[in-house]
């Protein structure tokens, strides 16, 4: 993967982010810089990817009095996002039915802690991509917790998923710089169950709300 990084003198340079291979990953696990727990099978760590399993906690959207999922502060929190989600749990080996066009918040079975200089790029395993489920996300260096995944079934028929099955994978990349994930306050910290979006805590939304109020003389 290539990233455009800004050099101290302001010039831009193509710099290669190194993907970590099996040996690198095992070394990080061995010296406890990378935590993956539980790692039920060693062969979850492939040559260039790590397989992750579907966890047992879910948040599903429900129909209620809220007319929409409100990603703005312009309605004075009248439609709180959290009230549009309902939690449901399963046991290992149980199944979860993912309906067409439904987006479900799930999490990995594994709890991870990434090194401060390694990030992860997530994608579905191809067997699940072929059924019509897609995800795309990045996990930041230093993140700790179960990985939150947003599963959407873009197929026209429901898909029955097994709890504990390896459904997605991560490629780990060296970030070329060490960062401290906890240098600033984090919205999501050590999560073990999926958490509804905390978008309304974004500072940007607060500023945008002020602008909207000013523009409308409110």
């Amino acid at each position: 993967m290539e990233t455009l990084l800004s050099k101290p003198n302001g010039s831009l340079q193509n710099q290669v982010s190194m993907i970590l291979n099996k040996e690198d990953v095992n070394k990080l696990i061995g010296n406890k810089k990378l935590v993956i727990s539980p790692l039920l099978e060693r062969d979850q760590i492939g040559e260039l990817t790590i397989d992750f399993r579907l966890g047992y906690n879910f948040l599903v959207t429900i129909h209620n009095n809220n007319p929409f999922l409100d990603a703005s502060l312009n309605n004075d929190d009248k439609f709180p996002l959290k009230s549009s989600f309902q939690e449901t749990r399963r046991l290992l080996g149980d199944t979860f039915l993912l309906h067409p066009n439904q987006t479900v918040l799930a999490s990995s079975l594994e709890y991870i802690k990434l090194p401060q200089n390694v990030y992860a790029v997530l994608s579905m395993r191809s067997s699940y991509l072929r059924m019509g489920i897609s995800i795309s996300a990045i996990v930041q260096p230093g993140y700790c917790g179960c990985i939150s995944i947003e599963l959407t079934n873009i197929n026209t028929i429901p898909i029955n998923l097994t709890i504990g099955a390896a459904i997605f994978q991560a490629r780990l990349y060296n970030a070329n710089a060490t960062t401290n994930y906890f240098a600033k306050k984090r919205k999501y910290m050590c999560q073990v169950r999926p958490v509804a979006s905390n978008v309304n805590d974004d500072n940007d939304l607060k500023e945008l709300n002020k602008i909207w109020k000013n523009n409308n003389h409110l």
């Binding site: 727990s37 539980p38 504990g164 906890f182 240098a183 600033k184 910290m189 999560q191 073990v192 169950r193």
Partner: peptide, 30 residues
């Protein structure tokens, strides 16, 4: 790098206890 509020510590601890037990159950069943 920031102050941990009591509710954050409460949340973290409960999450970590829950996951420690959950991992033991999963590994035992596996």
């Amino acid at each position: 790098g920031f102050d941990l509020s009591q509710v954050k510590v409460y949340e973290i601890l409960n999450n970590l206890i829950e996951k420690s037990i959950g991992n033991f159950i999963v590994k035992t069943e596996w």
